[in-house]
Design a protein around this nucleic acid. Structure first.
Lengths: 241, 241
DNA sequence: ATACCAAACTTGTTTAAACAAGTCAATGTG
DNA sequence: CACATTGACTTGTTTAAACAAGTTTGGTAT
């Protein structure tokens, strides 16, 4: 956790919004007031506010002030605009979770895999299939493809626990950007084998391409979610032109 | 279109990335170089780059430079992190489009509608059902709820053409933020009536809450998409803590 | 040749200041 | 009373400068 000023101000304001110290549709203190309150420059305050705007917590209105437009979203499986591991997500939603590794293998990318993952043919990959359980129910089938060169010691045991913890804490690799594509797909044999879809015949599918701090894509993951337990929140802003 | 400096620099860089003047995995010119090139301050250049980072076009690496990580995504129905009308989206993807208004009515929000749209009970709303066609195929069922007080002259004819054009150009209202929730839902009678889902029994559903420049939510829309033609792209960044 | 270190780059954070532009209320004038 | 204007607020854009921190390169001493 970085102890940069704008980040502490951002977290502080965010908390005050979430705990409704500032109520919905109310104006936050003006930038000038916050400058005095936090003893920093206006730019630093503005940067903190910019983060909140990006997350849809507030909206700046020129000439008036910064408006609180935060409405809590009930138990969303995914948190918007941020990368979150399955474990973190479960903890945030106060749920029981469990992961079962059903497949663990080193493979070489062929043409079909290249098309799907965009890893070039011949690349050595670790391919993992995992089933994620929330409150005892199997809800997500995960297909992970990791660049073997960057995750040398990845084992089945680590996959069972938390791969992201291994990547960040053990390897010291920094995860920066992830491009995610959401689609709806028909169920396949693997989905059917592990997940009870009731009378659905399709799932919510999130495909993600994840990059480390050096701009190298080291992971392709396809997550296939039970429709009843999938929710994805996004904040969009209108760009002029 | 605002003629602010950082925006023109942003657009310029973006275009150079899209046309591969800077190639994938290549470093962009350093901030200092760009300062000289555009004749502006470093902050202004940094602001333009920040926009590109937000959209997943580039990734800054401290000590090294700004890396181009842009990969074109084939025809995505939705554009990430921005608000786009159905008409704009169709134009961007060079598709034939057509909208059919099948229902147009003024209603008062009851308890059920309040729960769904978060408009308080008793609020006067304009409720519109529209079917969107791409290349002759009906692909999207749209349920719009507009705050009647803010869109007094909204008519069936406008709904057929483009509601956003009316809002922005005629009313001069500025659309700023939209919170979108994506889910997968089973088809209902209306879906079945208008859309040929083949052997799917569910759709991709996007619910959006849209705010104007004054922080007033004036629209709730539920868009129900044919799974084969739905794709949603998102860029996530890892926040520390 | 190797190892180390310093200099010269890169981006990241913070401050300070000025001016532009939008909002609002009080004040004045007709 | 109605209306325009002014002035005091608000956020938005841009510049300039300093220092922190990470990566690269090249030279020096071993």
């Amino acid at each position: 956790m970085p102890k940069v000023k704008y980040d502490t101000i951002y977290k502080n304001l965010k908390q005050k919004i979430e705990t409704e110290e500032y109520s919905f549709q109310e104006l936050l203190p003006s930038e000038h007031t916050l400058v005095l309150e936090y003893g920093c420059s206006r730019n630093t305050v503005r940067r903190a506010i910019a983060e909140l705007v990006k997350e849809g917590y507030v909206q700046s209105v020129q000439g008036k002030g910064v408006l609180n437009i935060f409405r809590p979203v009930e138990q969303s499986t995914f948190k918007m605009g941020s990368i979150e591991s399955f474990k973190e997500s479960a903890i945030r939603n106060h749920q029981e979770y469990f992961t079962n590794v059903v497949h663990f293998e080193t493979i070489q990318a062929n043409q079909k895999i290249e098309k799907k993952t965009s890893f070039p043919q011949g690349t050595e990959l670790i391919y993992i299939q995992r089933i994620h359980y929330f409150d005892g129910k199997p809800l997500i089938v995960n297909h992970n493809y990791f660049l073997k060169a960057l995750l040398p010691g990845l084992s089945k045991e680590i996959a069972q626990h938390s791969i992201y913890e291994y990547i960040e804490n053990t390897l010291g690799m920094v995860i920066v950007t992830s491009k995610r594509v959401m689609t709806v797909e028909k169920m396949n044999e693997i989905d059917m084998k592990y997940i009870d879809l009731k009378d659905y015949n399709c799932l919510a599918v999130v495909s993600s391409f994840t990059y480390n701090q050096e701009g190298v894509m080291f992971e392709y993951t396809q997550s296939r979610h039970h429709p009843d337990y999938f929710k994805f929140v996004d904040i969009a802003t209108r760009r002029n032109g």
